[in-house]
């Protein structure tokens, strides 16, 4: 079964404009059925989520962000009964084991290191949505 059939709503939380752009471009190009809501930091994302009647099916979360970083966001969402079950994919340039295991402990479902190439981005996301490991 393709994950794509289930996934309708995505949320990307990232303060990096370029990364947001790359992400958005790839989703629009490759998965036009998906709706993508975007937040530039954890706090904004949390507000959006709490005010939304249609929570996302999956959240892509950057770690290094102003106001509320990925870690703080994780802690917050996992204490919210309505939101805690949303799968979270960490999307970070940090790829060290410690960060990975910390995030897994906090409840992250998957860990993706931001690729260095556009082509790699595309490949990675396509792969993720088509063969979701979740």
């Amino acid at each position: 079964m393709l994950m794509g059939d289930m996934i309708q709503n995505l949320m990307l939380i990232d303060d990096d404009e370029d990364d947001r752009e790359i992400f958005l471009t790839i989703v629009e190009d490759s998965f036009p059925d998906f709706s993508l809501s975007i937040a530039t930091n954890g706090r904004e994302a949390l507000q959006k989520l709490q005010n939304s009647s249609n929570p996302p099916d999956i959240i892509f979360l950057d770690l290094n962000m102003p106001l509320m970083n990925g870690r703080q966001f994780m802690q917050a969402i996992k204490t919210d009964i309505n939101l805690q079950q949303i799968p979270i994919v960490i999307l970070s340039t940090s790829s060290d084991n410690k960060t990975r295991s910390d995030m897994e402990i906090l409840g992250a479902n998957y860990f993706i290191t931001k690729p260095d190439k556009y082509s790699a981005w595309k490949e990675m996301l396509s792969d993720f949505f088509l063969n979701s490991p979740l």
């Binding site: 990096d16 370029d18 790359i22 290094n64 340039t93 940090s94 931001k114 690729p115 260095d116 190439k117 556009y118 082509s119 790699a120 981005w121």
Partner: peptide, 20 residues
């Protein structure tokens, strides 16, 4: 190095994007 990494990655990414 963490912060330097970002612009470098961007350059790499967008060069790739440019080439494509």
């Amino acid at each position: 190095s963490h912060d330097l990494q970002e612009p470098a990655r961007k350059i790499s990414t967008f060069i790739d994007a440019l080439e494509m």
